[in-house]
């Protein structure tokens, strides 16, 4: 197995905040890898280091086989970045944007134009191809932004929160595009705050907490870490009142019910109890909360 990304002990601090505190990552070629973490966790900082934009204070990283600090140009020739903010030229049309990126990626004028037509078709932007990007909706910009990263084939595609700020429909559209890229064999490294996104797209997921990988594995492996089912109590309007993780045994379930009985909210009229499989949300809270305060039994809804 070759590694598309191999990062060891990455550290980065800005002033007094230590953003990365010894981050290790190993991403096999041809897989989709999601780095999951809340706002401010250091996801963009990680991407910035892996895409040669900033240097780590310590540690090392190889991307597509080349060192990001020592062999930056070799890395740049094999990656594309779609950053957190849509990095498109708003004054130009979509076609002009793609042609410009094509020219900058070494295509001839003619190749760049035919590539632009094909990409805009694929991203369903053909009708708007001659319009200035300034007039585009958020979803259209994001699609163009992604198209710009694909003018030439690359080994590793970096996507920093690709669907943040998009409505559900645009998000799903983008997911299917990302999935199809992965099926073509491109290694995709994406960051996200959305567990569902990581669950749907990624072969492997790393949870970023306090500058380190707190847990790593497939969505299934991560869910297995939390153990059994979750008992939840909802009020008459379906609003979640309490969630209690269990260990999956009859005894554990009974203990959870007993716990519910002790809570004042449980006696509210119309309350409904149900059992469900753990979501990645539960995993995330369990992993990160465990780091903050040991073994919380009760996860109250926000």
């Amino acid at each position: 197995m070759t590694l598309a990304i191999d990062a060891r002990g990455l550290r980065k601090r800005f002033g007094r905040t230590e953003v990365l505190a010894g981050l290790d990552l190993a991403v096999p070629s041809g897989t989709v890898f999601a780095l999951l973490g809340p706002n401010g966790a250091g996801k963009t900082t990680t991407i910035n280091i892996l895409t040669t934009l900033i240097r780590p204070d310590a540690g090392s990283a190889r991307v597509a086989g080349y060192d990001v600090v020592e062999q930056g140009d070799d890395v740049k020739r094999r990656i594309s970045l779609t950053g957190q903010a849509a990095a498109v030229d708003e004054v130009l049309t979509a076609t002009e944007n793609v042609v410009m990126m094509g020219r900058l990626s070494g295509l001839s004028r003619r190749e760049a134009h035919s590539r632009a037509a094909a990409l805009l078709e694929r991203f369903e932007l053909t009708d708007a191809a001659g319009r200035r990007v300034g007039t585009y909706s958020g979803g259209m910009r994001r699609r163009l932004d992604l198209a710009l990263s694909l003018v030439v084939p690359v080994s590793v595609l970096f996507l920093d929160e690709p669907t943040t700020g998009l409505d559900t429909r645009s998000r799903k559209e983008l997911w299917s595009v990302i999935r199809s890229l992965a099926d073509d064999g491109t290694t995709v490294f994406l960051t996200t705050q959305y567990l569902e996104e990581a669950d749907r797209l990624a072969d492997r997921i790393a949870v970023l907490d306090r500058g380190r990988v707190a847990a790593e594995g497939t969505a299934g492996e991560l869910k297995a870490r939390i153990g059994g089912d979750v008992v939840e109590l909802r009020d008459a309007d379906g609003l979640l009142l309490v969630e209690l993780p269990t260990d999956g045994t009859v005894h554990g379930l009974r203990a959870a019910i007993d716990e519910l009985d002790r809570l004042p909210v449980a006696s509210a009229p119309g309350g409904v109890v149900s059992i469900r499989r753990p979501s990645l949300d539960d995993v995330f809270l369990a992993i990160t909360d465990r780091a903050a305060a040991p073994a919380p039994e009760l996860i109250e809804s926000k």
Binding site: D6, S29, R62, G65, R77, R78, S105, S155
Partner: peptide, 18 residues
């Protein structure tokens, strides 16, 4: 470890293309 490049690397640009 060898380079994992599945895709060909981007070509180098002409002198003043950029």
């Amino acid at each position: 470890m060898t380079a994992t490049a599945l895709a060909p690397a981007r070509p180098r640009l002409g002198a003043l293309t950029a």
